[in-house]
Simulated scan of single mutants.
Amino acid sequence: MLLLVNIFCVYLATIGFGLLVNVPKRALNMGGLVSVSGWLVYYYINTYISGYVFANLFGTFVVGLLSILASRYKKMPVIIFNIPALVPLVPGGQAYQVMKSLAISNYALAKTNLIQMVFIAGAIASGFLFSEFLNQLYIRWRIKKANQKKG
Results as ranks from 00 to 15, higher is better:
I7N: 01
S126A: 13
N106H: 13
L66C: 02
L28N: 06
K144Q: 10
L86E: 04
Q116P: 09
V118T: 14
V98N: 08
K149I: 12
V10L: 09
V10N: 00
I115N: 09
Y11Q: 02
K25T: 15
K25E: 14
K25D: 12
I115H: 13
R140C: 07
G92M: 07
S126E: 11
I68L: 11
S126T: 14
A125E: 12
I45R: 05
I124S: 01
S131Y: 03
V78P: 13
I139F: 01
G18E: 01
L28G: 05
Y44V: 14
A110V: 07
F133M: 12
W141Q: 12
L137E: 12
N46M: 11
I80N: 04
N106S: 14
A110Q: 00
T47I: 12
N56M: 02
G38S: 09
L129E: 11
A55K: 11
G31A: 15
I80T: 14
A55Q: 05
T112G: 11
M30F: 07
E132G: 13
S67V: 06
F58H: 05
T112M: 13
R142S: 10
Q148L: 15
L134D: 04
Q97H: 12
V21L: 10
S50Y: 15
Q148W: 04
G32I: 00
Y44E: 08
I15G: 03
K25S: 15
N113S: 15
A110T: 02
V34K: 03
T14E: 00
V63S: 04
T60R: 01
S71N: 09
N6A: 05
T60N: 00
A13C: 08
F119G: 05
V41G: 04
K145S: 12
Y44R: 08
F8I: 04
L12D: 01
N6T: 09
L89G: 03
S131G: 06
I7V: 07
A121Q: 08
G16S: 14
V36K: 00
V53M: 06
S131D: 05
I120P: 02
G51V: 08
I83S: 07
L4R: 10
V53Y: 15
V23K: 02
P91E: 11
S50W: 14
F81A: 11
E132N: 13
P24R: 10
K100Y: 15
P91L: 01
V118W: 03
A55S: 07
N29H: 10
A103F: 05
G18S: 05
E132H: 13
K150R: 12
A110E: 01
I83G: 05
I120K: 02
